[in-house]
Design a protein around this nucleic acid. Structure first.
Length: 475
RNA sequence: GGCCACGUGGCGGAGUGGUUACGCAACGGUCUGCAAAACCGUGUACUCCGGUUCAAUUCCGGACGUGGCCUCCA
């Protein structure tokens, strides 16, 4: 069965053919580490994690390289550093901000069930030429100047967009059209208003590196060109990111990379996840609907309860990755219910992941990651398992969920208390014993105790007819 | 103003030129010490107007609506 992927550049869905199946290569634009990641940031992390898992499943774990950068040089980071650590030297303050934020980001996406990428390079490690000879930004910029694709003007190095005949192909923007729009800053030193900065000078309270063009820092797009080449080579398989990055970020990455390396393409498939709204409105701090991953996991700010990483992940993948998502309490509620049903079936049959993924499920996923259709197959498996006590269906359900990055125990973790789980299991054990003795008074007492803890019990039977009790957090 | 998506039942959300998506909610039932859950069954749909076609929710054109990008942004 073929894997088919939608390519933003060619606007079509086609069979994925890696350049080298023994070394499938994917680059995804990662976070700028200046503040807590919001739920919108979680989307590309989850979407491309699923693609990563799918590729590993097809080509083998050792044959897929997933690079996701960490942007740790950015004006927002500078601002945050000056605000939060005014007494520290700038570099130290910046390091404090980026290290803390990076740790937060990792904790958040870990909780969402995302695997760590193969490599997570930090931009600041790729500004200057490196001892290991991996591609760096200064060298890349030098190559662009040499090849006549960039020029120096007023202390900046600018990319000469007119030097690239098909600039704008990804976003469908032509240079002459852009002149019409008044939004692009017209600077006298630019040859064309669409030209963008590769290198800019730094003042004393901005981070800077010594370069052939003076002390300065890289522009917004060059870091990804450098790090992608450093780990994946000049042409690779998949480049991903959010829809909003198509222009200017990815457009400019393509321009830089192709012109510096003189290649026909930078990546063979450009993939973009859709945007997310919150309760029907664009997420913004001014509307007060700005919600971070951490808040969803740990606070009751959204919907009066907190949500497990599995529920957040499920809510994210029950919509196709290219469609917009309206992030609502109702959607999380529904996700929680559906997931609980799957979990109960898996537990009831004692099914463990590691078995075979259901073929129909895999087929849906292979069709440009049609996760909603794939999940519908899980409903079918769930039904088959329960209707006909079909062990195999339950095993396939567990294995398929696992390919989606969802394991049953992710759902069960009670927030903020690691002993919670064990405690509940003990109480359930006592209650099961009481029920076996027909001591229903005691049995009901324990059930009430658990209910007071916010835990609802569900009695069932396993395939041998033995009583099995599962539980979930009360809604 | 330019570019790009999208508009499916009460809600979420796939897909298809003629045949059940799927789930949540609702209603009915089976089962269980009770409750809950689970399982089974039932109903409701394809924004509007033209066109192509034997046949359109599905293709083409238009209208209206929603969202995104064009500036840091997943």
């Amino acid at each position: 069965m073929d894997l088919r992927l939608y390519d933003t550049l060619t606007k079509d869905k086609r069979v994925f053919a890696p350049i080298d199946p023994s070394k499938v290569r994917m680059y995804v634009c990662g976070p700028t580490v200046y503040d807590f990641a919001h739920i919108g940031n979680a989307r590309p992390a989850i979407v491309f994690d699923i693609l990563f898992r799918l590729l590993r499943h097809r080509y083998g774990e050792a044959h897929v390289t997933y690079v996701r950068n960490i942007t740790d040089v950015d004006d927002k980071i500078n601002d945050r550093a000056l605000r939060d650590f005014p007494h520290l030297p700038l570099n130290e303050a910046i390091r404090k901000v980026t290290e803390k934020t990076e740790a937060q980001f990792h904790a958040d996406v870990d909780a969402l069930g995302c695997l760590r990428p193969t490599v997570e390079p930090r931009a600041t490690d790729f500004v200057l030429p490196r001892a290991d000879g991996k591609t760096d930004m200064v060298t890349l910029i030098g190559q662009l100047i040499e090849r006549g694709h960039a020029y120096v003007a007023e202390g900046e190095v600018l990319f000469d967009t007119q030097s690239m005949p098909d600039y704008g192909k990804l976003s469908g923007r032509r240079l002459d059209e852009q002149q019409a729009g008044a939004r692009i800053a017209v600077d006298a030193h630019k040859k064309h208003p669409g030209d963008f900065v590769l290198w800019k000078g730094s003042s004393d309270n901005e981070p800077g590196w010594d370069s052939p063009w003076g002390r300065g820092r890289p522009g917004w797009h060059i870091e990804c060109s450098a790090m992608a080449a450093a780990y994946l080579g000049t042409t690779f398989d998949i480049h991903g990111g959010g829809l909003d990055l198509i222009f200017p970020h990815h457009e400019n990455e393509i321009a830089q990379s192709r012109c510096a390396h003189d290649t026909a393409v930078m990546a063979n498939y450009w993939m973009h996840n859709g945007f997310l709204q919150v309760e029907g409105e664009k997420m913004s701090k001014s509307l007060g609907n700005f919600v971070t991953i951490r808040e969803l996991l740990e606070s009751k700010r959204f919907g009066g309860r907190n949500w497990s990483g599995a529920v957040l992940r499920f809510a994210m993948v029950k919509t196709h990755y290219r469609s917009p998502i309206d992030w609502t309490v109702d959607a999380l509620d529904e996700s929680s219910k559906r997931l609980t049903r799957f979990r109960q079936t898996v537990e009831k049959f004692g099914a463990r992941a590691g078995g075979d993924v259901a073929p129909a499920f895999l087929e849906r996923l292979a069709d440009d990651m049609n996760t909603p259709a794939a999940i519908a197959e899980l409903d079918g498996l769930n039904r088959r398992a329960n209707e006909a006590s079909d062990q195999d269906a339950a095993r396939q359900l567990a294995a398929s969920l696992s390919l989606l990055g969802i394991s049953p125990d992710m759902e069960q973790r009670a927030p903020g208390n690691e002993l919670f789980d064990d405690n509940i299991r003990q109480l359930i054990g006592s209650r099961t014993a009481a029920r076996a003795n027909k001591d229903f008074k005691e049995s009901d007492r324990i059930r009430d105790v658990l209910l007071a803890m916010g835990v609802v019990l569900k009695d069932g039977k396993d395939t041998d007819g033995k009583p099995v009790t599962t539980w979930e957090i009360a809604r």
